[in-house]
Amino acid sequence: MDALRTPHLLTVSDLTPGEMEGIFRTADSFLDLSSRTVKKVPSLRGKTVVNLFYEPSTRTRTSFEIAAKRLSADVINITTSQSSVVKGESLLDTVRTIEALGADGVVIRHPASGVPEWISRRVGCHVINAGDGLHEHPTQALLDLFTIQKRKGRLKGLRVAIVGDILHSRVARSNIRAMSLMGISVRLVGPPTLIPKDRGDWNAEVFHDLREGISDCDVVMALRLQLERATANYIPSLKEYAKFYGISPSVLQSARPDVLVLHPGPINRGIEIQDEEGFREHSGILDQVHFGVGIRMAVLYLLMAGGNKGEGNA
């Protein structure tokens, strides 16, 4: 099997290109399985996966839950509303919960950047980051790349435009890293208020004009716009954002004829994605959901099936 060196998946930087390819191969083999009548394999029988979600996210949580169950793991879902974080439930309590449940693996979604990493230094089980603050969402990037590979047949040499609120996007952060690692050239498209000024070693070109930014692109990835960005003056209004950065059939004329459109969901229709029917054959959005389960099965399997518990890092 394509074992991983890391006991945890906290950021995309935990992975090598070879390991990512290994995850894709494993995901492929699990996807074959999902077309059968008996969808389960016993790989994680007797192991416990805790889904710890401090932010509501039905999609990601369900995806991880299905993935873990198809691997025959016992799944415990804990969904805590943001308010209890505000009320001061401490992260140390969270660590105690994880230990009391005897988790072998814990999948964490948290509104604050760095929490999965923080937890991983204090528990003796595998930790998977399911999205932390503005920081990273590695399994999303993996399933995005996997979708691109399935649709395009390759990754290396492709050109991808990520459009929207890069500044506040963990999906963008993980994708920029992962895409660079896999030899994709990345463009960032959005207003200057939503693109970080300090981009360090991100190897990405920046565009403020949408049509220019997506010209000649093989893939356009639209990000979800948090509606409160308008009240905070990052953008003047949703209407103006939609006008300048909405992906529509006519805008897509500027991209390559076989352009693939992705979106991590949930979509604000009429804002970042407009008139989806008009580019249905270009959309990879349903594939993303479908492949998401395969990628998460692969990650859980490769981290947890080997029998190591990820100590050493505890």
């Binding site: 503005l134 920081h135 300090d198 360090g200």
Partner: peptide, 12 residues
């Protein structure tokens, strides 16, 4: 501090 480290860590 606003800068590359903040960008990378996803901190404001």
């Amino acid at each position: 501090n606003e800068g590359w480290v903040a960008t990378e860590l996803g901190l404001r």
